[in-house]
Design a protein around this nucleic acid. Structure first.
Lengths: 190, 190
DNA sequence: GTCTATATATAGATAGAC
DNA sequence: GTCTATCTATATATAGAC
């Protein structure tokens, strides 16, 4: 295995754990264990320690989201398909809990790093979705609502679907996302 | 100040911190500092230590939610007012992050305690809301959807409003909740 | 690249003075 | 009721063998 491959593997494992359980909950020992190595061995792959590892993980994560969302949106022809494509994209990725990220995880890193992460998160995730809504609001496809609020609501709906324990239902996440999207577009009373 | 009053104050402060930042992120030192005392002094009020304090906080929290939701629902005359009353109730309370609770916080406590907390959370919070939706689905006020999914979606929308930083907007949380509720009921395309 | 051993820092918990 | 001092446990980080 090449050096960059094994590094990717470390980042993959760390990302999954950090995304699922949060910065403070995940110990370096947990990451090492998931990789089948000792805690100290992690420092060969991540000499910067825990905080630096978390930052690299998040930077790579946001980079991937930006790319993935861009492609998902570009390949869909109408705005409703774009929203569905965005939803499916997030379901294919490790869960992203904004609330926990802002309130918990980012408090543990140096303020200037937190600031930067918030910035790239906005550009990678919030902005592409806002732009979908802005376009279809301008085209008259949806009514006048607060776009930032709508974007936050949309994301929290998707992530709620993402974190439904698989045992509570026998439906796929995509099916649930479709149902939630349908409610968002046409309402409960339709 | 009576003994039970000062105990309530400890629980209030601990609840606010645990609810906002999560179990692992909040250190006993943080709670003590917010109370204006030293970390060791906390053990006078919470002899059981951190985990026991967290459990007491959550038990009391769920008890209060059950009561508060019951009253909010009972005082509203139609189902739409009930949903609004439920939303306002949650906005008046410390934020409740189910995702973090299940994925992060509960992993830190003994499994039997975690199990119990999940159970009382379901009874206190999920069940009352499910019942609203079941009633209005039976009455034909809303169309056929997965009630559990809808309940989760509703809650995550409210909490999303709750965790919008106040500086991002000049609108009140209640206004935002009204807008989100309106979208949920009538859809984006209405 | 991974290990053991260990140093250092932090968090949780206890003892006893006041 | 709160304090200081301290113990213990845990987590992060480093050193050096293999």
């Amino acid at each position: 295995m090449s050096s960059s491959e094994s590094r990717e593997r470390v980042l993959d494992v760390a990302e999954k754990l950090f995304s699922t359980y949060g910065y403070a909950t995940v110990k370096l020992k947990d990451i090492a264990k998931a990789l089948g190595m000792r805690q100290a061995s992690l420092y060969y792959h991540a000499p910067g320690g825990k905080e630096e590892l978390y930052l690299e993980v998040m930077r790579r994560n946001m980079q991937r989201h930006r790319q993935g969302l861009e492609e998902a949106i570009a390949q869909a022809d109408d705005w409703q398909s774009q929203l569905q494509a965005v939803a499916y994209w997030f379901l294919s990725q490790p869960p992203m809990d904004f609330t926990r990220m802002i309130h918990s995880d980012l408090r543990a890193v140096h303020p200037e790093h937190a600031q930067h992460l918030i910035h790239i998160t906005y550009e990678a995730v919030l902005q592409p979705i806002e732009q979908i809504f802005e376009r279809c609001q301008a085209a008259g496809d949806i009514r006048a609502v607060d776009i930032k609020l709508l974007t936050g609501a949309f994301l929290s709906l998707i992530q709620a679907v993402h974190s439904v324990p698989q045992q509570w239902t026998n439906r796929s996440k995509e099916e649930m996302a479709d149902e939630v999207l349908d409610i968002l577009l046409h309402g409960l009373t339709a």
